[in-house]
Amino acid sequence: MSDMEMPGVLVSAFEGPHGICEDHVGDLQKHFNLITMKEFLENKTQFNRKIQAIYIWGGKPDINRELLLSLPSLKIVASAGVGVDHLDLPLIASFGVKVANTPHAVSSPTADLGMALLLVSARRVLEGYQMAISPATENFCVNWMGHEVTGATLGVIGMGAIGYKIAQRARAFEMKILYHNRSRRKLEEEEAVGATYCEKLDDLLRQSDFVMLAVNLTPQTQMMIGRRELGLMKPTAILINIGRGLLVDQDALVEALQTGIINAAALDVTHPEPLPRDHPLLKLKNVILTPHIGSATHQARRQMMQNLVESILASLSGLPVPNEVLLK
């Protein structure tokens, strides 16, 4: 089958920070004629009716009304990852276009990173590394200490697939696990990981030594951790965010970190990404930042690609779409 006979799939680019993974291109081209945004914009009349799917990688390409109007044959928007806050779902649905994501591929690696950030921040690993390699270091101080993880209380906000896997991992550290979610888990699921449900977020914040954000960004969860919520946390507590940057009021977080309202923060996500180079979070010693790498493993990213291919092919064949995102 020639490229032009294959279904046309719009992608951001083949190179650059928002390009699709180079290792995946060959697999994708077995099924689709990949058309970059640059190619499409330079010759819309050639490609507009051929494009039947949009393959979103790293949040790109952007989907707006103008793009949707220009793609009359579009059937599905397939987006890598679990979060869909970058998509206007009602707008896309109004064009009769389906949306799919890849929630199962990201849950384990993101939970792994959440625990890594918890451990690194608790034991001050980054500060310790800098001390160990500094030319100015002559002695290691015996009284330089971090915080114990074993037996500590972890509060998980968002007990979906990722949050539950975090609880599974935390149980191995003999942690006391609290969780807050829009709906309570089944009793047997709670018992399996030793988790206690907190109907009120405030109760979780007051009791937790570590607070882990693993919730999706929605209008209801945006800025859910602000000055008031930070003030409820223990002064020794550490905030870990593996969800989305906008879950947290970053100005309030900076203030809380500078004044000792909380002890530290470990953030895989911020708003924007990356932060401006003069942002105060970049200058604080009690902050660890990583570049939104929750799902950044070779295995997870390949699984994401395969899941997207399955969803696109199902949509084009008129079959039920795996991992279809439905309007609520």
Score class of each variant (00 low, 15 high):
L308E: 04
K200C: 13
T270R: 02
V82E: 05
Y164F: 13
Q303E: 15
Y197H: 09
L326W: 13
L230Y: 00
Y179N: 01
I20D: 02
V142G: 12
T236G: 07
G243C: 06
R185S: 09
A122I: 03
L68I: 09
V215S: 08
R124Q: 14
D203A: 13
A214T: 03
V215K: 04
L34K: 09
S12N: 15
G155I: 00
G194Q: 02
A214W: 00
G114A: 08
G294L: 03
G146T: 11
P90G: 10
I63R: 01
S183L: 08
L205C: 10
R171T: 08
V248E: 01
N143E: 14
R302H: 10
E255F: 12
L187N: 12
G58I: 06
R49V: 09
N143S: 14
P280N: 10
I166S: 01
T137V: 15
A111R: 02
S94Y: 10
L204V: 04
T196W: 08
R244P: 01
H86E: 09
P280Y: 05
G231W: 07
N241F: 00
K328R: 09
D268R: 04
L232Y: 06
T236D: 14
P103H: 09
G194V: 01
E273I: 06
P109M: 07
T196R: 12
T153P: 08
V325H: 00
G8N: 09
T196N: 12
P90S: 13
D251K: 14
E190R: 07
M212P: 00
R65V: 13
K60F: 12
M159N: 00
L89S: 07
A78N: 04
M304H: 01
V82F: 03
P90K: 11
R228A: 13
S208V: 08
Q52T: 11
K44M: 13
A172H: 03
Q46I: 14
V82N: 04
E42P: 10
V77I: 14
F14T: 06
E190T: 00
R277I: 11
N101Y: 04
G226R: 10
P17K: 14
Q130Y: 12
G158Y: 01
Y129V: 14
T102I: 05
